[in-house]
């Protein structure tokens, strides 16, 4: 079996994250290769969202460096953020929202061109929501809304997707469908970085795990499952605590 050397997209070296009053995470190092499916897990308040914001460039790290490969320019990471209250009630059509992901591609030109519209149509088709394109966003179910936002993230970038707890608030069946969709996207070559509360599902879906909190663990999911930390957290879950 020939193993092709995978391209390193992100190289996080000895990074400290936090705010002015103090660091939440220190000495964090990990890499993300093309085609990886990385799940970031940890307790509440451990700094998962802060890490995500730093990877997206919304925040600067307190120390350390984050190297991006040349192929991954600043705005080539698609993001699926957690929904705000404002958005759930927003009067916009699905197509308008998905198209807004193409904004960084228009440059100085004020309107969307044919290429951007086609890109949006492709993203919607990929996520199976073309039939919803003229529907109002606020009338959709939770699962459908997540797909719309995922399509928007795909419009913004097609190499890496950053997902912030995508299945929060969704019922189990819809969660499974969304995980399946994300799995398909990963199989088609998109690198996935996902924050999740659900360690059991994370271990099932991912290729790599980054566990942050009191102790930091980064490695393949097999390594995590066999590690003491992994066994502790997974063991906790299995015993139903």
């Amino acid at each position: 079996m020939t193993k092709t050397k995978k391209e390193t997209l992100l190289d996080v070296k000895d990074v400290s994250l936090g705010y002015e009053d103090g660091a939440i995470i220190e000495h964090l190092s990990f890499t993300v290769q093309a085609g990886d499916y990385l799940c970031i897990v940890g307790e509440n308040g451990s700094g998962k969202t802060t890490l995500m914001k730093t990877l997206l460039g919304l925040q600067e790290p307190l120390a350390g460096t984050i190297e991006r490969s040349a192929a991954l320019k600043d705005n080539a990471i698609g993001w699926l953020p957690q929904q705000t209250v404002v958005q759930r009630d927003f009067p916009a059509s699905v197509r308008e929202i998905v198209l807004s992901g193409c904004l960084n591609r228009t440059g100085r030109y004020p309107f969307y061109r044919k290429e951007e519209k086609e890109r949006a149509d492709r993203a919607m088709a990929r996520l199976g929501i073309t039939h919803l394109k003229d529907r109002c966003y606020r009338e959709l179910s939770g699962g459908q809304q997540q797909r719309v936002l995922l399509a928007r993230a795909l419009c913004a970038a097609e190499q890496v997707l950053l997902l912030d707890e995508p299945v929060t608030g969704l019922d189990p069946k819809v969660s499974m469908e969304l995980y399946e969709m994300i799995r398909q996207l990963n199989r088609s070559g998109i690198t996935i970085i996902m924050i999740s509360h659900d360690i059991a599902s994370a271990v099932q879906e991912a290729t790599h795990i980054l566990h942050i909190g009191q102790n930091i663990f980064f490695g393949t999911k097999e390594a995590y499952t066999n590690s003491r930390m992994g066994k502790y957290f997974l063991g906790t879950e299995e015993s139903g605590e």
């Binding site: 997206l56 460039g57 705005n75 990471i77 958005q87 904004l103 960084n104 004020p110």
Partner: peptide, 21 residues
């Protein structure tokens, strides 16, 4: 002229910023 950007910033300001707007 700025309609699309105003929409993006109204719907999801952080996303727009993450994309470089």
């Amino acid at each position: 002229l700025y309609y699309n950007r105003i929409f993006a910033v109204t719907f999801d300001e952080s996303f727009a910023q993450a994309c470089g707007t």
